[in-house]
Design a protein around this nucleic acid. Sequence first.
DNA 1: TTGAAAGCGCTAACAA
DNA 2: TTGTTAGCGCTTTCAA
Lengths: 341, 341
Amino acid sequence: MVTIKEVASCLGVSPTTVSNVIHGNTKEVSQNTIKRVQEKLEEMHYIPNMSARTLAGNSSKIIGLIIRYPVMEGKNAVQDPFNSELIGMIEAEVREAGFFLMLYASDCVEKILTMATIWNVDALIVLGVGANECKKIKKTAKIPVVFVDCYFLDDEDSYNNVGLKDREYAEKITEYLIDQGHKKIAFLADNRVGVDFERWTGYCHALERHGLPVRESSFFRIKYGESGIKESYDAVYERKDEFTALFFASDYYASLAINYFYDRGVRVPDDISVVGFDDNIFSRNVRPRLTTVQQDAGKKGRIAVGQILAMIEKRTLDVKNIHLDAKLVIRDSVKNIKTEQ
Amino acid sequence: MVTIKEVASCLGVSPTTVSNVIHGNTKEVSQNTIKRVQEKLEEMHYIPNMSARTLAGNSSKIIGLIIRYPVMEGKNAVQDPFNSELIGMIEAEVREAGFFLMLYASDCVEKILTMATIWNVDALIVLGVGANECKKIKKTAKIPVVFVDCYFLDDEDSYNNVGLKDREYAEKITEYLIDQGHKKIAFLADNRVGVDFERWTGYCHALERHGLPVRESSFFRIKYGESGIKESYDAVYERKDEFTALFFASDYYASLAINYFYDRGVRVPDDISVVGFDDNIFSRNVRPRLTTVQQDAGKKGRIAVGQILAMIEKRTLDVKNIHLDAKLVIRDSVKNIKTEQ
DNA sequence: TTGAAAGCGCTAACAA
DNA sequence: TTGTTAGCGCTTTCAA
């Protein structure tokens, strides 16, 4: 390990000068010294020691990426294709900005904040964590925090968040179904909080707006794990005649369902229509191709990191809680049944 | 930030004593003091400062996870479903062992080692990096390194690696195809190095063993990106009559191909048989279900972290380069054409 | 059984 | 324009 001291003594200058050159505080350093120091730094392969820098009161250059702790058996937090894309994007952006990414999966606010303190983390990006946790994190953390895909119970606009117009687009895709003649539409998700709650609400709004009844029995909770999913789909199958269309809160579940139905001889969209949400690899890699709501995970990541960097550099932000636009993508999983009625 | 000093002065003891209690060096501390210190630590919510610890010569408790830098347009390094599962598993294991995970995507050995030095990283887990890079990393890094899914040009057994019996199982699945009467089998992958090279080699061995010709023209290089894939598949389609079976080096490409063929009216397995490799979500979420080689990404992750921890704790390892067993999973994407001939 | 003191590598206030 | 020095929080050696 080459230290600043070593470089300095090699050159016969003081550590301060070397440090100043490293940080570009060169107003008071002669051109000649700057050059000599820079060359020596290069020559000796000087690599900074971040622990020392951080300890000396500088920023750690670490950004903590918090992902939700896995609830599901045999499934981990990175595995969801939407999350993966987001994480990959965030890693790339953080790295390119000269920061380091510490990945930490947890639902426990205490642990998250401890991790942030231990490492003197500069900022936190928090993915898809529940409203209560968000509140606590925001209240306690003394560093910039950007949430991604979070929904809050209290003052929405006091949070820094990058999300999607989930409700609006859930409403749109539901209206599309209604427009295609569907009146009996089920909503299926593995929970009904946060993002999924918003999508459910959008679905409800669309039904109400068109004078269709909103029934609690039209909500199916999909259980976790392979066997849980199968069990849940069995329940849907039993009641399939009650519905003409199924709105899944994610492409993942929608594509699994299409294949499940295929196996049981139920054809999509002829026998039942299906829509999803997200437009990830699953929606395109299933037949029939899935009609869904398209969102850009990469964009979310880029914006989130952009916000974080702006906050770190203490620039202010005009918009705090951003909800990105999405796009209805019509493919082949919905049948127009208007004429049949 | 509560420091050891503060805790110490609150208690009227020295920082040394507090530090000793924290680290369990309690042979020379009285029971009473231990208790008092522990309670105070708790009460004051003492959280260590890792920068200071690291600077004072202790281990950083950071494990660096290096993933290959993305080559493909619009695709990032975390996005591959196999990688995601592995990363999620590694994160969980690392966290549970009391370490922290720094995620870093790069192909550049210099940058990787700089990152390791900057942070005084305790160990490195390196995923799917090329042989040349592996060699350099092993030679230069002065910390434990475990490679995952890497293949090496020089002395294989001098590396710590967790891989799969890629060659053997590629051979097995090829033999299965031959056993089902297939003689004209293409091999398709997006490259032919590392893991994919092994799979290709296994494929070649099987053909040779059964007296079938190995032709360079039976290798298809799948191009990156959505349009690249389509273009590549178009080329396969053009020559589809030359083959009765297609061996894809990954489930991802195999499942995409099945759907591509479906769209063009080519039925799998009736018109052409398809096999994949990995058995991830794609193989099960496609119809017909994909016949493939099953491997356990989670297990790889667990073993890799186990090896790393053992190395960090300076316990020795008997087996260094582990190649896990896989399993041939026969589903519905291969037709038995023996009788037709 | 406990504590004082030095030092890890770096930064920054201040002096020269 | 350059250098001296103190100190960030912690560990560890050595003395008490």
